[in-house]
């Protein structure tokens, strides 16, 4: 049983702290080159390996990541 995950990042509220990046088990997160309205680089998925485990959301101090999962 495998899962396909998707995350939605509230990029305007992300402060680019990067705490989520190293905790992703499948290494699909990186900080963007672009910046949001406050000048922060924001987190984003850089591949489609997300399994919806929500590790990133759990450590996000500002709760900007919502996580969705589907069984495939």
């Amino acid at each position: 049983m495998a899962f396909k995950g998707q995350i939605i990042v509230d990029t305007e509220r992300c402060k680019g702290c990067g705490v989520c990046v190293p905790v992703c088990p499948v290494k699909c997160l990186e900080l963007s080159k672009e910046v949001n309205g406050k000048g922060y680089n924001y987190t984003q998925t850089v591949n489609d390996k997300c399994i919806g485990c929500a590790s990133c959301a759990m450590v996000c101090p500002d709760g900007v990541i919502s996580v969705y999962k589907k069984q495939i």
């Binding site: 396909k4 995950g5 998707q6 939605i8 709760g63 919502s66 996580v67 969705y68 999962k69 589907k70």
Partner: peptide, 15 residues
């Protein structure tokens, strides 16, 4: 979010 829900995803985590 609505797109994902339509595609059969379930919400695992949100603020």
């Amino acid at each position: 979010k609505q797109e994902l829900l339509k595609e059969g995803y379930t919400e695992v985590y949100t603020k």
